[in-house]
Amino acid sequence: MPDPAPVPEKKTPDLVDVTRIYYEPAAAELPRGRQVLERWPEATRVPVESHWRIPELHGDEANVDRWVRIKREALVLGIKKSLQARPNGRSADFIAPSTANGCAMACAYCYVPRRKGYSNPITVFANIEQITGYLARHVARQGTKPEPNQCDPVSWVYDLGENSDCSVDAEISDNVDDLVTLFRGLPTAKASFATKHVNPRLLTLDPRGRTRVRFSLMPARVAKLLDIRTSPVAERLAALDDFAAAGYEVHVNLSPVVVHEGWLPLWAELLDQLGDATNAATKAQLQAEVIFLTHEENLHRVNLGWHPKAEDLLWRPALQETKRSQSGGLNVRYRARDKARYLDQLLGLISERAPYLRVRYAF
């Protein structure tokens, strides 16, 4: 494995230092939109017709030179117009309508930039009351879950952060607060989101077991190269007991699993660290998802312009095969036969080093 390369430095210790807010006028009129605008009163405000069409942010490959700067300094306010809870069945029963899109972090393998193109900073959807109302009605229509599945044995599970990181979103607005509050009062459903950011403010939200937080983990040496602008892996591990004690259901995502020379010993070390970091109460409810790397050709080309060292691990033609995505993009993933072998090796390692950890989903 190559040594981690230096990554672009932040001007401030914060993930965001907003200097420019692009807003749909209708979003700025809503209470949540006003909250966000008032938080950064000195930021330049730029009205836009649509959060999807902002040429200086989206769809311009030249923005690769400003990848991290855009994520730190730009923020978008919009209205979520299409409200739909899509069936999933893997990690969650349903994918909830997004309350945000984009991310201030810059993981080198992230699929979110494919949606709007390139840097894709955070868009906050201001019509939160409309979104939570839709979700409450959708949950009510499902009734009681008829039988257990890999998502949950009792509750319908709704993934909240398909196109964002909810822990980061909670640094920007109260949308995540409202979602945790909503699911706290829904006895037949749970919220769920994956995160690479430790946000201590979430510990105050009193989820009462109705929100599942899945902390994404990978060996620290690999994360230093690929998980740009995220909380260090050691910090994520240290947060597990705190979040469990605060009333969250705490799981871990072993994701993405990146295959390289010497990868299994690094995962063995991480599993030992996981055991050392968690108490008996956390271990008793800890479950895992295991997701191997899928990468994408266009993102590969973008990464070569701002963080090429990451591609030494992510783009491995000798190990990978191609597949067209539903959107028509060219994805690469480990060859099926080899991936099955890698998965067996990792699951065997989990059984040996972390026998308390039930793997709920592996892909």
Score class of each variant (00 low, 15 high):
R66N: 15
K224A: 12
P113F: 14
F193I: 12
T230I: 01
D152A: 03
L270H: 10
L237R: 07
P232Q: 06
D93G: 08
G209Y: 02
L299A: 11
S50K: 08
L225T: 13
R214P: 04
E9C: 07
V76E: 11
C110A: 07
W267Q: 08
A74Y: 02
E321R: 09
K81L: 11
V68I: 13
N120G: 00
K224W: 02
V198W: 10
L357Q: 03
P6F: 05
R86K: 11
G102H: 07
Y342R: 08
I350C: 05
T204M: 02
E289Q: 02
N279T: 05
L270D: 08
P355C: 02
N120L: 07
G33V: 09
L314R: 10
A136W: 00
V48H: 03
I122S: 09
S351L: 09
D227M: 04
P148N: 01
H51K: 04
L57K: 13
L266A: 15
A268I: 09
L15E: 01
V36Y: 12
W315N: 14
V290M: 13
Q287A: 09
H307P: 01
G78N: 06
P55I: 10
T294G: 07
I79G: 10
G305R: 11
V36G: 15
N279H: 13
P219N: 08
C110Q: 05
L30N: 07
G59A: 05
A239E: 01
A280E: 15
L349A: 13
L186H: 04
P113M: 09
P219S: 08
A74C: 14
F125Y: 15
V233I: 15
Q326D: 07
A140V: 07
Q320G: 03
R141Y: 07
V64N: 04
N298E: 15
R353W: 09
G209L: 07
E162R: 12
N331A: 04
E24K: 02
T181R: 14
D17T: 03
R114I: 02
K81P: 06
N101T: 13
R221V: 14
M105T: 14
A284K: 13
L202V: 04
A26M: 12
L240Y: 02
D312I: 03
V157H: 12
L286P: 05
T322A: 13
G161S: 15
H307A: 06
D174Q: 09
V7I: 13
L271H: 10
Y361R: 12
W67N: 05
L237I: 09
N331R: 00
H138Q: 09
S192V: 08
P256L: 13
G133Y: 04
P41T: 04
T282A: 06
A223C: 11
R184V: 04
D241T: 14
